[in-house]
Structures are given as structure tokens and as C-alpha cells.
Design a protein around this nucleic acid. Structure first.
Lengths: 301, 301
DNA sequence: ATTTATTAATTCCTAAAAATCATTAATCTT
DNA sequence: AAGATTAATGATTTTTAGGAATTAATAAAT
């Protein structure tokens, strides 16, 4: 008794049992009656006993068949339901996507990303983790997030990064500040301004440090805050100026702040999408990635 | 996306997911690694997305695969359990058999039949319906009983009858009765004896009536009882004699009763196994039938 | 850095399984 | 008794699955 019973065989039995006819069942199953006849024969052969009693004129379920039928129905239905479920997920009509997002993006582009994604896939549950970029990368590594919208930094060999935003540092100052009139400036020009800096641990600050070298050490260092928000708040009150990635500016449109490009050198950070190398994204995550990519790459200034 | 997913495909996925290796899974599934590789590919093709992430060196379950895996495991396990269950039934190691048995047989041969059957198939549940023969046939017709050990009588076109016992009518009388010494007798010889008869409705009485014709009407008719048991009881007390099928005699071995064959004519009834024509018996019923047949056909006198 | 070993994928080929078409056998209906 | 209907069967074709050998990729060892 080798178990070469297939789902088709069981389905055949279920349908014949329901319709009480090989011909009708064959019709429903889109096979010929002879093929169906053989399928049932094979099934019975494998089981070792008849499940259908048939004359040349009629079909009925045998006692053993009555025992098997509910099990058979359950198998077939469970199978179909499971495959349907997976198909719903594949077609991004059901499912869940879990991803990380760094502060800047969650403050600025995330609403648009979520809105567009939800419009296209209203039944997908979305779980956003608002993390710092290193935390975001960590969550991708340990599987808590399928992807991250973040800064890659030194990255990680297991992770893959698609850069989408080249986020240049700009100077922000109060509109009344002399600099506010300038079309652009340089690090040399602003070196005597009162700078509001982020704390030393901050990844963003490290970028400045690495890119400015000596010039960095000459920036005023008497006002340190923890977040871009605080920086902007202080700048908005004219307490000082700050160097921030230009994307950050979007998070506080309410303030009387001017934005001035700065060069020599141009400093920038890369924002983009981080995924686990070689791990296939869920269909929902794939879609989210597309949406995020289109919005992030479409972002100007 | 035609749904040509087979159980083998799903099983393949489950095993690869568990072992994390195509080669090892192929080993367990007794196929080559290349065959397995194709099965997974086919499954993924049908589902429309990858369930396994693989490099040439390692395998892991994708996010979608994680979603599918528990369903897949359930499908495979449920299938195996169901087929195992049916196989237990086919092998008569589990199951139930429901059958009818007329009074005579339940009084005489049934214990032996049940004992032998239970010895061979201790885990099969047995449900005996003790019916009159016509009731027994009715239960086979309406499916309450898979078979009947009974007298077929006029029978029924939907039913099938295998005659096993040719149960001849004999005269029973008290051991002190003159007839008790005879090796045999005839209906003519006993026609003036005091007969204890069954009630007119009785099927057994009808057999006598049909076979004896005129002679029947001349039998004394002043003592009618409902059951063979009562007949034997009265005969055991010397109150009269009776004509009973010889099998019935076995049910009361305690009484001082002599049995005398009677001829001219020999009257007999056929006892045997009744089944529904064209309906396959359950494996347990098939076995019970065998046991009953061997005991019934082995019955002497 | 180069070699070796390991692993999944692929190619080519063969074997087995399943399907179809046409026909047959049985039996129900008229 | 004839015709219609239904499941089974035989012969053939089509499809699918499987195996052996090879390839491609990459991790481990030297």
C-alpha cells in the first residue's frame, strides 16, 4: 500500500459523492468521465477498499466511504482555504507588513507613504517602528522589521541598501538673521555663528564631524540638544543657527526659519531602503517598498 | 495560476523548511535533490511567490513561507491522519459494525459468533439489533444494519441472501412421551398429538402452513404461544409437543426434551446472511460476515 | 589568494502517470 | 424489444515527474 493518493483523487471522491454521478462530477472537475473513473479506482486501490458503490447506472457512497467523506471534505476545504489565504497575501489583499522608519522620515514622508499604500491596499495591516537608523537596521537584522527607511551609515554586510535621497545639510536660521538673505553660504562663512548642535552620540553629528574635519572643531559648542525638533525650535526663536539635513526642515513648516544651502564642502547623508540580503520580502512589504521608493525618490530638496 | 499543487509539493516544502536543506530533505523524502528542487519551484510557481529563500549554500523560510508553513503542516498532518484512520478501518483494527440478528440465532449461535469476532478484532465496536427476521430485513434496507443473520422469507429484490442453514422442523416432546423413543416420525403419525403452536402471525407458523397444507389445519389448535421459548417451556413440562426448527432446540438445553426428526413432508426454513444488493460492506462487516458464515455453515443438526 | 568542498539549480533524457478518444457492458426507460 | 444513459475498459497520446550528470555559486580550508 504505497500512499500515492493525491488531492485530486480526494477531490474527485468528494465531488462524485456530492453529485452522485461520475459524468456530472467529471463535468465539474473539467476532466473526462473516464479519467475520473480511473482516479476513483486509484484512490480505492490505495485505500484498499471501495468508497463508492456503483453500478453502470448509479453511484452511492459505501459505508467506508461515509466514514471517509467528512475527512476528505475537510482535507480538500482546508487545502483550498489555505491556498486561497496565501493567494490573498500574494495579491496584497491581506496580510501584514512590519517596517522601521527613522525619525526624519517618520516626521516628513511617512504620512504620504502610508496614505498611498493604504489607498492601494486597504486591508493590509501596517506596523511602523519608529526607530533611530541604527535601531532600524538592527530590527531588519533580527526580523522584527522586513525593511527600514533609514540612513545606512556603515551598514552591515548582511543588509542591502538602496539609496534614494541624497539629503544635503543646509543652514537654518531665523528669518531675521542676516544669513537668511543669502542664496548660499559656506562653512568658512558661518564658522563664527552660534551653532546649536546635536549631542555627540548622534549619528548625524558624526557625519558632520567626519566631513568637516578641523573645521568642525571650531564650531561653537555651547548649545547641545537631543533632537532636530529642539534644534528647529531654538532656531525658530532666533537663539542660534543649525546645520541640518534639508529633509528635516519639512517637519516644522510653522516656524519663521530660512534655509540656506551650504558648501565647501557639501555635506550630505544617504537615506534609503534597507533590507536583509537574500531574504524575499513578503508581497505586502514588496509593495510598501515600491511606494516608499517612489515617494522618496520623488522628493525634491 | 492553475492550482496544480499536490500534497507531495506541500510535504516537500514542510520537510525542507524543517531541515533547512534540500539535500537532507531529499534524503528523507527518498527522492533526488534535483527532483525536490523542482517540486519547490513548481509550488512557488503555483502560489505566485517564493516560500523559501535559498542561496547555493543555504535555505531559509521566507516571510510568506512563514505564513504558509503552519497551514502546510496542518494539511499534511490532517491528510496523513485521515488516511491512517481509514487504513485502520480497512484493516479492521478500528471501526464499528451494526447488524441485525433474528431471535433464534441470537439465542443460539450469536455468542459464538461474537466471541470469535471479538477475538480477531478486539477494537471493533459491535452493535447487535435483535429483531424478528422481517424487522432485520427492514433495517438492512434502511441502512440501520449492514447485514442480517435471519430468515429471508419472500425477501426483497434489493436484498441479497446467502442461505447457510437449512433448518429442518423437528418434533420436540418430553422425554417421557412415547414419541421420545422414535428415531423419526411423520406428520401423519403425530396428527392427533396435542400441539403447542405459535401465534398465527408468526412467520415460522406460516412456513408450516404453506408446507403442510390440509394437514396443517388438522393439528390441534388450543394452545398458542408467542415464542419458541414458551413452546419449549411447555414441552419441557410434558404439556404437549411442538414442531420447531431444530436450531431452536439449542436455546434450551436444560429441559428434559427429546427431539424427533419428522418427514412427509420434510419442512424447513432457510437461515442465512442478508445484505443490501450492490452495497459494499464495511471492512468490519465483511469480517463479521465471514465469521458468521463459518459458524452458521458449520452448524450440524 | 587559491583550492576544495558543499549545495541548490539546470539540462538532458527516460520512465511513469494521467488524460483522452472510442468503445463496451450493463441497466433503466419507454 | 429498442433506445438511452452511465460507468468501465482498451488503446493511444500527452503530460508530468524523476534520475544522472553537470553547472554555478559560495563557504571553508590551506
Amino acid at each position: 500500500m504505497i500512499r500515492d493518493i493525491t488531492l485530486d483523487d480526494i477531490t474527485a471522491f468528494v465531488v462524485v459523492a456530492r453529485l452522485g454521478s461520475f459524468a456530472m462530477a467529471a463535468d465539474e472537475l473539467l476532466v473526462t468521465q473516464s479519467a475520473l473513473s480511473r482516479r476513483i479506482k486509484k484512490l480505492e486501490n490505495s485505500l484498499g477498499a471501495a468508497v463508492l458503490d456503483r453500478t453502470t447506472r448509479s453511484v452511492s457512497v459505501s459505508t467506508l466511504g461515509l466514514e471517509f467523506l467528512p475527512k476528505a471534505i475537510r482535507i480538500v476545504e482546508d487545502f483550498n482555504r489555505s491556498v486561497d489565504d496565501i493567494n490573498e497575501i500574494v495579491k496584497v489583499r491581506r496580510g501584514i507588513v512590519s517596517f522601521s522608519c527613522n525619525m526624519t522620515i517618520s516626521d516628513t514622508l511617512l504620512p504620504e507613504i502610508l496614505e498611498k499604500f493604504k489607498d492601494a491596499h486597504p486591508n493590509i495591516r501596517v506596523r511602523v517602528h519608529e526607530d533611530s537608523s541604527p535601531q532600524a537596521l538592527e530590527k531588519v537584522l533580527n526580523g522584527q522589521s522586513e525593511l527600514a527607511l533609514a540612513q545606512f551609515g556603515e551598514g552591515h554586510p548582511e543588509l542591502e541598501f538602496e539609496a534614494l535621497i541624497n539629503d544635503q545639510f543646509v543652514i537654518v536660521c531665523h528669518k531675521s538673521h542676516p544669513l537668511a538673505q543669502s542664496k548660499s553660504t559656506t562653512w568658512a562663512e558661518v564658522q563664527n555663528e552660534r551653532f546649536i548642535l546635536l549631542r555627540t552620540e548622534s549619528g548625524t553629528r558624526k557625519i558632520l564631524q567626519r566631513n568637516l574635519g578641523d573645521r568642525y572643531d571650531q564650531l561653537s559648542n555651547d548649545l547641545q540638544v537631543g533632537h532636530f525638533h529642539s534644534q528647529l525650535g531654538l532656531v525658530g526663536r532666533g537663539i542660534g543657527i543649525a546645520a541640518i539635513p534639508s529633509l528635516v526642515r519639512l517637519s516644522r513648516k510653522d516656524l519663521d526659519i530660512a534655509t540656506v544651502p551650504i558648501s565647501k564642502p557639501v555635506v550630505s547623508r544617504q537615506l534609503g531602503i534597507v533590507t536583509y540580503r537574500g531574504r524575499t520580502l513578503s508581497p505586502a512589504a514588496k509593495k510598501l517598498r515600491e511606494v516608499a521608493a517612489s515617494i522618496m525618490s520623488g522628493f525634491e530638496k
